[in-house]
Design a protein around this nucleic acid. Structure first.
Lengths: 353, 353
DNA sequence: ATAGGCAACGAAAACGTTTTCGTGTTGATA
DNA sequence: TATCAACACGAAAACGTTTTCGTTGCCTAT
């Protein structure tokens, strides 16, 4: 009787020794190769099942030169949008037998590079990533280029880079912003402001562009654009007070504002809070639309109308693109850029009273 | 001149062939072995650097029988607490040269098992996990036992299981809840309710226990306990309306309630919303404390006082425990259970006006 | 009787490392 | 001149698979 050492994983070799056959025979028997007689096959399979043999993934990876795992690099995981994207990635990855390994850049170029290098040397088959803000700022993309040159496919999402040719999945920020502002106009708002980021943040820039397009399409020109650019750091919860002050000041200077489009939930909620303190009622005196249909929008009081980015669908699409490329035999598979449509989720902040 | 095929990763073998030495020599040269002459070492290192040689992680893993990666299994990633835990894990993992591979159970026993089996066969060195609700309900822990029996260490966090002996990192739910309720008492609340989950959810049960302990320590006995147990599903944003209705009904039946302790942010915010509609002002007529210092607490209006679980610290501690065990030579390292202290974060919902 | 064929299995290479243990060459020493 | 280190390097095993290509032994057809 075989006494398995519970501390030692079963291998083909140990099974072979136990049954008294060669490693090859065990391997073939377990894969139902016709080369092996029914008799020995039964014996081997029974033994393997009894002691719960599972092939070693690392050995398989080395042999097959593929790991069946996807590397995901994101700037921040404590962030609703990114987590929904991950959940989408994970869902289709799992469905197709892939694992997901997560690296966080914390918005740092350095960490992004380190993390990618750590994973690029055989640990994964391909990347899904959204670059850090610092990378966008520095415009240094050598790590991305090198990775691609080494034959490792990348799918970029949300914060993509034009200079890099690869598959991309993006949110239609400009169109989404435009639609949000058009909605405010349709609701009767006459003086619509945008609360946005600095321009080097791509999504901020694109959403600002959409804002302008919407207004200009209704013949509201520059003199009546109200744009508040906020410093990076104000997004951080530790500056919540400062954020409110800045927005409050902005609203005081522009008392005619009756509609706000904010490029994220945080700006939107702070705007609402600031407005209340200035005795402006939402939505009666001021209508607000945010971006990202996260937890804040749903549970805020009043609940926030917002543009959903469908992060989960985005993640699913990104994973599909990557896996399709990984499993395609066609080396020249053309690169795609998939656009995920935004959708206006109407809640209390745009109710017409 | 060597013309590297950019599609092909550099290996020791290809370097060896190019320089005209053996594989062993290359390996030794790169590791600065004294066996190798300065001359050839220089040559090899220069070549390796020029073409950016990086050893293949998979081959290393196979050889060393360790992967330097940690498997993290959580029930849900679109959840503030879990993401902060991950960020903590990731931080110390990275510091110590480990990668993090994430599996989601989606609160499903089945997915939890599958995911763990997928990773347990060589892909990772150890697990950090929080079990799914279904696992808690079924009380089937065979996958955990088997994993441990195979010599793979596990660190459980938050939702731990007494029957399983392993390292654990937990939040002091009972104590935290007790302190929250004591705070409400100190603020002068006379009729304090708890909004909690069904009892099979461990954290809900423990926090309810803390609620009772606090009241009883001030001689407020059962007849004056107001406990609202909510169905699982009401936590989901799609049932936000129903949630509010249930809480609203509860408040109507118990009009004397002047303090609420909610076991999560969602219940707390819904309670505030319900109260407002019943013309109760927060914090004037009703004081509220939640659990989890997430994004909702910070940006709510009024901002929510809450018990912080310090998820990031918890994650860091869990990673430290695991890595310590992985790198310890002592097989009999005693198992630890680390308790992360909660902390009351006071905001507007407990202000004394 | 013998060639041919098939059934059932094993040996060995390969994936990319690390490391132990040779082995050949040099220079110095007795 | 013979011996012996020290030096510089290579061969090979090992990690756990898969797969190709033998190699047996036996049966059948000529």
């Amino acid at each position: 009787m075989y006494l398995p050492n519970q501390m030692q994983k079963l291998t083909l070799k140990s099974i072979a020794k136990e049954i008294g056959v060669s490693i090859s025979t065990v391997s073939k028997a377990l894969k139902d190769s016709p080369e092996i007689s029914d008799d020995t096959r039964q014996k081997i399979k029974a033994f393997a099942k009894l002691y719960n043999y599972k092939p070693n993934n690392i050995a398989l990876s080395l042999k097959n030169r593929k790991t069946k795992t996807i590397g995901v690099i994101i700037p921040d995981i404590v962030h609703y949008f990114f987590t929904t994207v991950i959940s989408g990635i994970e869902e289709v990855a799992n469905l197709k037998g892939y694992n997901v390994i997560v690296g966080l850049s914390n918005e740092s170029f350095q960490k992004e590079v380190i993390n990618m290098e750590m994973l690029a040397n055989g640990s994964i088959d391909g990347f899904i990533l959204s670059v850090s803000k610092e990378t966008q700022l520095l415009k240094d993309y050598h790590h991305l280029e090198e990775t691609i040159n080494q034959g490792m496919p990348i799918v970029m999402f949300d914060r993509t880079i034009n200079e890099i040719v690869c598959d991309k999945v993006i949110v239609d920020d400009t169109e989404g912003a435009k639609n949000a502002v058009l909605k405010l106009l349709d609701l009767g708002c006459k003086n619509i402001a945008i609360i946005t980021t600095e321009d080097h943040v791509n999504v901020g820039k694109l959403r600002t562009k959409g804002y302008k397009m919407a207004l200009e399409s209704r013949n509201i020109f520059k003199s009546n654009h109200h744009i508040l650019h906020l410093e990076e750091k104000l997004y951080d919860p530790i500056f919540i007070k400062e954020l409110e002050v800045v927005i409050s000041d902005f609203l005081k200077i522009n008392p005619s504002i009756d509609g706000i489009f904010a490029v994220n939930e945080v700006y939107a909620l702070s705007a609402i809070k600031a407005a209340k303190k200035l005795q402006k009622e939402v939505p009666e005196d001021l209508k607000v639309i945010g971006f990202t249909d996260g937890i804040l929008s749903k549970y805020a009081t009043p609940s926030l109308s917002t543009m959903s980015q469908h992060g989960k669908i985005l993640g699913m699409k990104a994973a599909e693109l990557l896996i399709q490329r990984l499993e395609s035999l066609d080396v020249d598979l053309p690169y795609q850029t998939v656009i995920i449509e935004t959708e206006l989720i109407e809640r209390e902040t745009t109710e017409n009273i």
